[in-house]
Amino acid sequence: MATLREAIAARARTGKGSLLAYLMGGSVPPETYLETVDVLCSAGLTGLEVGFPFSDPMAEGPVIQKAASDALAAGMRWEGLLRLLPQVASRVPCAVMTYLNVLQHRGIPVALGDLAAAGASAVIVPDLPVEESAAFRSAGRKVGVDVVLLASPATSEERLRTLARRTGAFLYLVSRYGTTGVTNEKSLEGARTGPELSPLISAVHRDRPGLPVLVGFGVSTPEDVRRYRAMGADGVIVGSALQQLVARKAPSQEIADLARALAGALEETHG
């Protein structure tokens, strides 16, 4: 199986966008989780972010918060993640997304070593800004886990250059001011979507040609995909929209339809 970095790079080389999905590990039984992964894979998924729950997920909207508390209530533990990951990794390249304290508590080198051994090729930690990431990234390099950094519309051009240089696999561009989720419930303006991202994306492409930029947070429709592709994104990350379907036990046809529609929108445009 290719690493997540290789899978995204391969698609970018041929002008194709990548579709990443996020599903909270432990929020549903492993069999259901893997069936959903299979459905997503046959719809054209490039890679999966396996969420690992933290009790206090500050960047998450209501859907992922609920998924995290459900997973913890169902007894999800690190061991459970290490059992799930190889089964996911045999299907699709994957990353783990969780909060710093979970990894910190275990010891960063040990935690990243565990993830690598279980088949994850990248890790995404939303509360790890680049300033605090040096030791983390060097631990990742030792075991072959890419540390994906996040940028946001608030990021200055100068910072963006630093992020582009230091991120692994791709740059995760947060689409807007806000937490994860479709509605962006705390936005005073009720703005579901964010600002124009093309200047940020082209700055990254100019600065580090070949580094894919994937847009996430609030991506839920083919229109979103078209908009971000038109802004120059190399792909999108879909989390809450899918997690919501899984949480309410939607028929796999419905999940397949959404994934196919998103993947289809990625094929339409060539960035």
Partner: peptide, 12 residues
């Protein structure tokens, strides 16, 4: 100490 926050808050 330190500042372990999402990127969106760093400029603020």
């Amino acid at each position: 100490g330190g500042a372990y926050v999402p990127e969106t808050l760093i400029p603020a």
